[in-house]
């Protein structure tokens, strides 16, 4: 099982090594395009971010299988304790942030969190993190937007349309804009945080390389070519930008999903409506 979890990472690194063009120095570039599939309307490029996110999904699948196989009623294995801890934490998180109606929401929240966190952590292996591509994160944001709209529609389209003219009817255009701004801001928040970390890391690494050339450039032979100052400091930055920021953004994305869905759902109206319907059916 663990081999299945590690194999996608190895595949990703090999693909990256095979397809990376030869280049001089450090540069900031987007995702590599592995190959393009011809399509009737427009060619479909299969990029590094798509492949990497698929590999992350396979990794998470095998990790889940590893954690949950051979479960016993009384926990004997360490991995079962870990799995129970994860389930308990997400369930308590969902319970504190959403109403009781959403008690089945925990698996979705956990999977979004795991996908986002593992995608951001890919940069630790030198692979391209899919979350620093707006297309991937934009897809998640659209998914969340569909969920929000679905729960707002629970009381029927008329109730949904009425909610736009909430305080005063002439504010409706502004409400529409704020409705559309939700997925855009969610996508940009996640993407911008991961991308800015990558950009700052590259800038610092390049700057340190230049500084080493100035200070230690006079050393004879190959000693002058070793970037002494690049040892250490980029690693500290990586702990913040890759580890801390990646996990934090995953948490924030899942948290915002829960808050938006829970606040968009008109629970009292829905319950009253359902009670009325049931009463009508009984007659």
């Amino acid at each position: 099982m663990l081999i299945g979890a590690v194999a996608p990472l190895v595949v990703g690194i090999i693909l990256k090594v095979l397809f990376t063009p030869e280049k001089v120095g450090i540069s900031i570039s987007g995702a590599l395009i592995y190959f393009t599939i011809p399509m009737p309307l427009q060619n479909l490029p299969i990029t590094e971010s798509q492949v990497n996110s698929a590999l992350v999904i396979v990794t998470i699948l095998f990790l889940c299988l590893y954690f949950t196989h051979g479960l016993t009623v009384k926990a004997e294995l360490k991995r079962q304790l870990v799995a129970e801890w994860i389930v308990k934490q997400t369930q308590s998180l969902v319970k504190t942030n959403m109403s009781d109606y959403f008690s089945g929401f925990a698996p979705f929240v956990a999977s979004i969190m795991a996908l986002s966190a593992f995608s951001s952590l890919l940069s630790l292996f030198g692979m391209y993190p899919p979350t620093s591509d707006i297309n991937i994160v934009g897809g998640w944001a659209i998914l969340v937007f569909i969920l929000i709209t679905y729960y707002k529609m629970k009381c029927g389209p008329l109730h949904y349309a009425k909610s736009f003219g909430d305080p005063v009817p002439f504010l409706a255009p502004l409400n529409v804009i704020s409705e559309v701004a939700t997925p855009i801001s969610m996508a940009f928040r996640h993407y911008g945080n991961v991308l800015s970390g990558a950009v700052i890391s590259v800038l610092v690494a390049t700057g340190l390389q230049g500084l080493t050339n100035i200070i230690f450039g006079w050393l004879p032979g190959f000693l002058g070519n070793i970037p002494f100052l690049q040892i250490g400091l980029p690693a500290i930055l990586s702990v913040y930008f890759d580890l801390f920021s990646g996990c934090l953004q995953a948490f924030i994305f899942a948290m915002l999903t829960m808050l938006y869905v829970a606040s968009g759902f008109p629970e009292e109206d829905y319950l009253a409506r359902r009670a009325k319907k049931l009463a009508r059916l009984k007659k």
């Binding site: 940009f188 993407y191 911008g192 945080n193 991308l195 953004q249 948490f251």
Partner: peptide, 23 residues
Amino acid sequence: LMGCAIAETTGLYALVIAILLIF
């Protein structure tokens, strides 16, 4: 942390615009 993340959004819009302008 949640509040910080939401307050950061405007700054990230600016970052995205700056990155678009440069690259």
